[in-house]
Nucleic acid binder design. Sequence first.
DNA 1: AATATAGTGTGTATTTTTTACACTATTAAA
DNA 2: TTTAATAGTGTAAAAAATACACACTATATT
Lengths: 220, 220
Amino acid sequence: MQTHFTIDCVIYSFNEGKLQVLLTERNEYPYKDWWALPGFFVDKNEEMEGAVKRILYEHTGLKDIFMEQLGAFAGVKRHPQGRILTVAFSTIVKYDDVKSKIKPMTSYMRQASWFPVTALPELAFDHHQIIQQSLQKLKNNIHYSTAVYEFLPEKFTLTQLQQVYEAILGKELDKRNFRKKIANDGFLKELQEVQKGVSYRAARLYKFDKRKFQKHVGVE
Amino acid sequence: MQTHFTIDCVIYSFNEGKLQVLLTERNEYPYKDWWALPGFFVDKNEEMEGAVKRILYEHTGLKDIFMEQLGAFAGVKRHPQGRILTVAFSTIVKYDDVKSKIKPMTSYMRQASWFPVTALPELAFDHHQIIQQSLQKLKNNIHYSTAVYEFLPEKFTLTQLQQVYEAILGKELDKRNFRKKIANDGFLKELQEVQKGVSYRAARLYKFDKRKFQKHVGVE
DNA sequence: AATATAGTGTGTATTTTTTACACTATTAAA
DNA sequence: TTTAATAGTGTAAAAAATACACACTATATT
């Protein structure tokens, strides 16, 4: 038996202190005019991972971004025209890198736009379920993955990092405890540089040191 | 574009102090005579979850078992005849419930047999990778899932429970600390019953109390 | 009846991790 | 020079995790 095979992408970014998801407004039936996750069919000889990169590029103009499989959604009734198996992936982009590039690249969608995960519109297909499942996983893995750093520029302040944690976990954290833990982990590199262009005391900048992180997590 | 669509199952059990996986010996090309995960094609109008239940039943004679999706494996080259997308699931069964029932139910396989995860044969397709990924997930979630109890009979001793933990984690645990933690969690129900038929002091029996567990984990 | 065996069952001290909590320092703008 | 805004810092208490050793009990064997 054969099935149609698509990819849907949960593309996150961080802006205005909130965790945001990129959605597209559909211009085709079924679910015409509904908001949906960016998604499309996988080509015959295209690797799944390549397909995810392609859609990410088509929607955001970005390349070479970390991405993770969430799982397959294959309900016979998830699509009105019969089973379309979709594999959901999630990726994280930096809002500022993307904001000027986003535009609909195909006639299948009318526009693309960011929504805070706390204020999503009604969504086509089972996309709401996909997002919720993805969010849960993001929360669960926050301490074991490099995900948080994907939201931030190369150089960032500890306050920015804490805001990302808070947006993902959906709760406030204690500043001193947060810094203590981060310092303890020891995979941030303190730079001899501070923020610029702020009208208050400039914060020190840090870099994420991937090598130290991998030692910490125990990657071989 | 369409693709063939299969399910592969990682079926675990616990026997002789070891975590075991059920494998089948293939009787068809490609990979004839190789060991492989139990797997098959999903029918056109069959739900994926139903398909997993079906294969579990066909291989073990068991019904209504906890199962979990690991993810989709869709490499263009994973099957010599072109892309066959497989969704891997894992399930856990009680060895004693199964041991008399296992037999090949189709001509596609010659025999089915348990292998300790620490001593797997060479496997067809990407099945070795699937098992390793599944094992990692089992370890990661051991404290947040009810998986360990799926390996055990309804009534079990603390030593048995500890052995399952040790088999999954691949390391020994301290008996007193283990019991302290279990007692602390408080979702085991101590029975007024002890083991029978043992030639040494009989151990107390316990039951897993799912309701208390769910409160503990915070399920709504 | 004595003994060997095998697994059960328990307590305490130490270290590590988590949590709670409030003030001073720096900078830019007014 | 004052104001407004955010950066940056330490300590104590509580909770959780770890390390560690011996006595108890049921049974089988002699």
